[in-house]
Amino acid sequence: MIVEGTHEFNVSATELWTILMDPEVLAKITPGVSKLELLGEDLYKTVSEIKIGPVKGAFKGKLEVIDKNEPSSFTIQMEQLSKIGNAHAKVEMNILSLDENRSSLEFAGKANLSGLIARTGQRVLSGVANVIIKEVFSSLEAHIIENKIA
């Protein structure tokens, strides 16, 4: 499953980088994530519950931030295991500075699914992934606005 897209934010590239590197922010904005525990440098243990349409499951796994190139790019490597199947994903994130107060996040990667989620309804899952990603960004935007006001 290919995931890709772009989203613009009303913060500078450096600010965006800082926000994205904060595990608490990541836990807060990612739908279903109930726990994001630091295991080591840039390595997190995750527990999440995803339910969208036919897809419902409790996922446990690891999330690792690699190939960090502050403030312009990093890669997220993820392994999520559940009873309904597993997901292994590698997504490259590119932060582009648009001007001092605006930046955009470009992401592109691939998620390999296995188990029941791979063979049942996979054709609708990229739609599911898009919904999740949109949620992530709107939460991120909300977080930015909240923090700016604060």
């Binding site: 296995s114 791979a118 063979r119 996979q122 054709r123």
Partner: peptide, 13 residues
């Protein structure tokens, strides 16, 4: 798929 998953392994697919 290229990882060897049968991605239409149900009657929905």
């Amino acid at each position: 798929d290229d990882t060897g998953q049968l991605i239409n392994g149900s009657y929905m697919d």
